[in-house]
C-alpha cells in the first residue's frame, strides 16, 4: 500500500504544471523515504529530477510498504489536479502492484471529498546516475528575476551565454537582429534574503544554453521565491527550485559547446 497525504494540493499542481510541457510521461518512484521523479525531454537535452521527502512537514501522512513505480501521463495528471481546490488536501493512493493511481481531494472544511482514479502506464525509461559534484559557481537569485531574464533575452535569440565571475553574473544573447545583456551584481544590502543575488565562485564559468529550455524551466517559478543555478564549464547547468516543506525540483540542461 502506498498512501501520501499532501497538505497543499497547490504544490503538486505547480510541480506538474511546470513539468508537463517538456516531459509528457514520467515515472513516480515511491519508497519509504519519499517520492522521486526523473525524466528526460524527448530531445534528450534536458532532465528533471523531483524529490519530495517523506519526513518533511508537507506530508501529513506518508506510507509506502514496498517500492513502487507509478507511470503517469503528466497531461492527464494536470487535468485531474485542476479538479482540486488550491487549499484542498490531496491524498495519493496505490496498491502494491498498482494499475491505478487514486487522487482524493479533501476541502478545508471537509464538506467536499472528491476521488479520481487514473490508469497507470508502463513507461520504459532509463534512469541516469546523477553524481553529487562540486560546481565551479553557484548563483542564488530571486526566481522571478531569473524568469524575467530568460523571457527578455528569448526575444532576441535562441541561446544565452551565462558568464559567472567574481563581480556577479552576466546573461547575454546575440541574435541576427540584435543583442542584449543583463548584468546582475551580488547584493549585500537587501533586507529580505529571498531578494538577494549571491554568487559563490570557485572558478569563473562562461557557458551557452538554449533559452527555449530555460524558459520552460521557469514555469516552476511559483514553487519557490529563489532559484539556484549551479555551473561548471562544459557540463550541464542545474536549475534548482527548493520546495518548502517537501524537497526540491531540479532541471539539468546540457550546454551548447563549440565543435
Amino acid at each position: 500500500m502506498f498512501e501520501a497525504k499532501m497538505l497543499q494540493s497547490s504544490v503538486l499542481k505547480k510541480i506538474i504544471e511546470s513539468l508537463k510541457d517538456l516531459f509528457a510521461d514520467a515515472n513516480f518512484d515511491c519508497s519509504s523515504s519519499g517520492i522521486t521523479l526523473q525524466d528526460m525531454d524527448s530531445s534528450h537535452v534536458a532532465l528533471c529530477y523531483l524529490k519530495l521527502r517523506s519526513d518533511e512537514e508537507g506530508f501529513e501522512d506518508y506510507r509506502c510498504d514496498r517500492n513502487i513505480t507509478l507511470g503517469v501521463n503528466l497531461g492527464l495528471m494536470s487535468k485531474i489536479l485542476k479538479c482540486a481546490g488550491n487549499d484542498d488536501v490531496v491524498t495519493l493512493r496505490a496498491e502494491d502492484e498498482p494499475n491505478i493511481l487514486t487522487f482524493i481531494f479533501d476541502s478545508k472544511n471537509s464538506e467536499r471529498v472528491s476521488k479520481y482514479d487514473i490508469k497507470l502506464m508502463e513507461i520504459d525509461s532509463e534512469l541516469l546516475g546523477i553524481p553529487d559534484t562540486d560546481y565551479s559557481c553557484v548563483v542564488k537569485m530571486p526566481s522571478h528575476e531569473f524568469q524575467r531574464i530568460c523571457s527578455n533575452l528569448s526575444q532576441l535569440g535562441d541561446s544565452v551565454t551565462i558568464d559567472c565571475h567574481k563581480e556577479g553574473v552576466d546573461f547575454k544573447v546575440a541574435g541576427e537582429q540584435g543583442s542584449g545583456a543583463i548584468k546582475l551584481k551580488q547584493t549585500t544590502s537587501v533586507d529580505k534574503e529571498e531578494d538577494q543575488v549571491t554568487v559563490q565562485l570557485n572558478e569563473p564559468v562562461t557557458q551557452s544554453f538554449a533559452l527555449k529550455f530555460l524558459c520552460a524551466f521557469t514555469k516552476a517559478t511559483s514553487l519557490s521565491d529563489t532559484v539556484n543555478l549551479s555551473l561548471t564549464q562544459d557540463t550541464p547547468v542545474v536549475v534548482e527550485y527548493p520546495i518548502a516543506q517537501h524537497g526540491y525540483l531540479r532541471f539539468y540542461l546540457a550546454p551548447k559547446i563549440e565543435e
Binding site: L128, I130, T235, P255, K256
Partner: peptide, 14 residues
C-alpha cells in the same frame, strides 16, 4: 558555431 549536445553524454545509466 556552438552545438547543442545531449544530456546523456554527461550522466551514465544508474
Amino acid at each position: 558555431k556552438k552545438k547543442q549536445v545531449s544530456i546523456s553524454r554527461f550522466f551514465t545509466p544508474a
